[in-house]
């Protein structure tokens, strides 16, 4: 009797193994598929869902980034708004008017968020790994990934992040802790300036 239950336990353990192996997500595999070019530009469609009001705000526009230098996020509809992110600042302007300017050094939370956004957009998996637990799956030439914050301070702002892509990031969804989320689809990606 005793022996039988031991054997059962052993088999049960064996059935667990494959799933354990699967959960061991391999960043190298991800690195092999996704590329993070020096320069990238494209277009986006963004849906921002506000939980409190149950409304979704759609915007479209174009973006580009220069690895490690800056990201331009140019909303074209329904308003004109250009956000320029560098590792040390975030500046938002409409036409000639600068509506917001944040210096990273005086604003630790903003620094953190912009660092995360930078890393997501440019597929810096190593960098992201220091902030998030990364899980997901890789299939042939596409991948989908879930990021869950390791850090309590970060978890205050971000609940989790979903990412999908192939060579490039094609889709991302930021879930905020308050139930709001931001969903972005990328298209017409190009490395040509």
């Amino acid at each position: 009797m005793k022996n039988v239950s031991l054997i059962r336990l052993f088999f049960f353990c064996l059935t667990l193994l494959p799933s354990l192996v699967f959960a061991q997500f391999d960043i190298n595999e991800l690195n092999a598929i996704s590329s993070s070019p020096e320069f990238l530009q494209g277009q986006f469609v963004q849906q921002k869902y506000l939980n409190d009001f149950d409304v979704s705000l759609e915007s479209t526009g174009k973006f580009d980034y220069l690895q490690g230098q800056n990201v331009h996020w140019h909303t074209l509809t329904p308003i004109q708004n250009l956000v320029t992110m560098t590792p040390s600042s975030i500046v938002s302007s409409q036409g000639e008017v600068e509506v917001m300017s944040l210096q990273a050094e005086s604003n630790p939370v903003v620094t953190l968020l912009s660092e995360v956004f930078f890393s997501v957009l440019t597929s810096q998996w190593q960098q992201l790994e220091s902030y998030f637990v990364i899980s997901g799956e890789v299939e042939a030439q596409t991948w989908s990934v879930l990021l869950e914050p390791k850090d309590a301070a970060l978890a205050q702002a971000i609940s989790h992040v979903e990412l999908k892509g192939d060579a490039y990031l094609r889709y991302l969804k930021f879930y905020e802790s308050n139930g709001d989320y931001t969903e972005i689809h990328f298209s017409q990606l190009s490395q040509q300036k």
Binding site: Q46, L57, T75, I79, N81, I90, Q94, V99, E176
Partner: peptide, 23 residues
Amino acid sequence: SLFERRTLGNLFSPLTASKVELI
């Protein structure tokens, strides 16, 4: 108008420094 633009900019930007409390 700067204040109005700032709110709209925040709402449509992928990244906000602080949550917009519209009410």
